[in-house]
Write a protein that binds this DNA or RNA. Structure first.
Lengths: 346, 346
DNA sequence: CTGTTAGCGCGTTCAA
DNA sequence: TTGAACGCGCTAACAG
């Protein structure tokens, strides 16, 4: 039995007081056409008197659904919702949920465990972003029979995924930089690149491949470039730029995310250098197109809106047809000409 | 009965197969110490074989709880999550939820109705922001026995609220502007000011009172100031600035939100005017302190983190003790000296 | 067509 | 260690 909560009015109470059966009360709320007008009236009147409305949890339990999609946060709340790109994706997912009458449940790791979090999430499906779906996660998904869509996840995997071709996008990014004549280049990578050791396949790694490809096409060695790993926030970008500038003076700083690039730019200004004229900067994400002010940052655009929308549509199709196992979805990308990547002058 | 979902393994199945009762199975998962070691082992082994874990919804239903807090979005998803200040508040709420093992459910209006949304939200409590809590909302809250905390809501109200003294904060803001000698002032207000007609008490209105007070202390009439209402996004700020600049040339533009101020600044630059030197700008919120890059915008700071945290703590205290009706919480505010509000020169 | 009876869903917990 | 009741609403099947 339950705790000490004040005893709620139930469908039973309305049945008794109105003189009808539970069934009729249920009908009055959900299929008024199924019973007589007067019955509906009397029942609803009684319900109003007793201040009754059906309990949504009991209702959902009975119907075997939750009316909510879970967005599984890869890190703790504080960090996940610090990332504007992730927020834009969440916003897009939310819009789809909204149009279907669903809520969107943000699910943080439970006791630092995403697996535990999935075990306990009362949702009809889960969308995740930038998370490695390991064995224990797959197990729980199977046990709970819970559909999951992974954004920016592994490729060649049985789990439905939405992503861009990160390798090609990164290559395009560095191509633009090299085209402009830059050779003294610093690249700020996201966590999860080869440098951090373990992770076998991550966005950062895929993009690194793209970078190396671009370099090799120009006959350059990866060693000619400074790589440095950083978190994905504005502050991280500033710190990282500070480290880089203390050391050398690249003609271009390449980042794997727009917010990092913004931090870099502000740090450059702070050092009394001029972004663009003295040091070029290029970002990644194209946040400006999704409504986040970037002041003309040159960047690679990947639509957060589309990623979110597509993944939500995928999850709903899986909920509606549990048998269907959708194929991966590829989102496009493009170079956005801003005002922070200029021709090398020196 | 439910739909066509693949039949899940239930506690009953484990009981049968393991030779123990449902009760014992339940104990094996929740209070292993209540039954023998071998029973626990055998049961858990059987569960593993059949790929069983307890269903969280059934569990929560049985326990009369949801393990989730609802954040009620005042507008549609798209708009609500466009607002960095709201996002910062959500982030803080989420962190508290996280630490208690709760999820955070984002609840958009259902069929454009917040009341309907509340009726159906499977959550233990609701936090809302900038929403007028009308009669029909109160009714549902009572019916559902659902605690609610309102951020930036009405004052002198029986609903627990978390807010700042908006009137005083706005006065401080305009005081700073007037101190610097500005007299040709344009003020961009949020929706819900007197101009928009109806709303009887909103943030915008309270702040307007503060502005008028400041003006009157300087012997100035409200008519000497240009008021213009705007949405709360970067883009809205740009548009608004465009309108203002097409008309006249104020020496200072005052906004009710930092993002709007950022839009104004970029629009000023676009017009080949210099923000700060030619036109001063002051914002409101202090987003920079909450991790959102504002490049030294002068502003009034109100802690989003604190608003979120306090409201989450309130809601949990109400959940834990349904009888308690907490008193309103006031958050502090302060002027942040940036580099966008300068002495009037002309 | 209107209304009812009975039982389900799944895990928790009281009383034995 | 367990059988039975419980939480709350939904609905198949049936009777008038």
């Amino acid at each position: 039995m339950t705790g000490v909560k004040a005893k709620r009015v139930t469908i039973q109470d309305i049945a008794r007081k109105s003189g009808y059966s539970k069934t009729s009360v249920s009908f009055a709320f959900n299929s008024p056409e199924r019973i007589s007008k007067e019955a509906v009236e009397k029942i609803l009147r009684t319900a109003k008197e007793l201040d009754y409305i059906p309990d949504p949890m009991a209702r959902n339990f009975s119907l075997g659904r939750h009316m909510s999609i879970g967005f599984l946060l890869p890190q703790i709340f504080q960090e996940s919702l610090q990332n504007p790109y992730m927020i834009s994706v969440v916003r897009a997912i939310g819009s789809i949920c909204e149009s279907r009458g669903y809520t969107l449940t943000l699910v943080p790791p439970l006791h630092s465990s995403v697996t535990e979090a999935i075990k306990n999430a009362t949702v009809d499906g889960i969308i995740t972003m930038g998370l490695r779906i390991d064995k224990s996660i797959r197990e729980v998904l199977r046990q709970r029979n819970l559909p999951l869509v992974s954004i920016d996840g592994l490729e060649n995997d049985e789990i439905p995924a939405v992503s861009i071709d990160d390798r090609a996008a990164a290559k395009l990014q560095l191509d633009k930089v090299l085209e402009k004549g830059h050779r003294r280049i610093a690249i700020i990578t996201l966590p999860g690149s080869a440098f951090s050791g373990s992770s076998s396949d991550s966005i950062a790694e895929r993009r690194l491949c793209g970078y190396k490809e671009a370099l090799s096409e120009y006959g350059l060695s990866p060693d000619s470039v400074t790589f440095i790993e950083s978190g994905a926030t504005y502050i991280d970008g500033m710190k990282c730029a500070e480290m880089i500038l203390a050391d050398s003076l690249p003609s271009c700083i390449v980042t794997m995310s727009d917010v990092v690039a913004l931090g870099v730019i502000d740090e450059i200004s702070k050092k009394n250098l001029r972004p663009r004229q003295d040091i070029s900067v290029i970002g990644f994400d194209g946040l400006e197109k999704d409504g986040f002010p970037c002041h003309g940052l040159s960047t690679i655009y990947q639509s957060a809106e589309e990623k979110g929308r597509k993944s939500a549509e995928l999850i709903f199709s899986m909920i509606e047809d549990p048998k269907c196992s959708p194929s991966p979805v590829r989102i496009g990308f493009e170079y956005i000409e801003g005002n922070t990547l200029s021709q090398r002058k020196d």
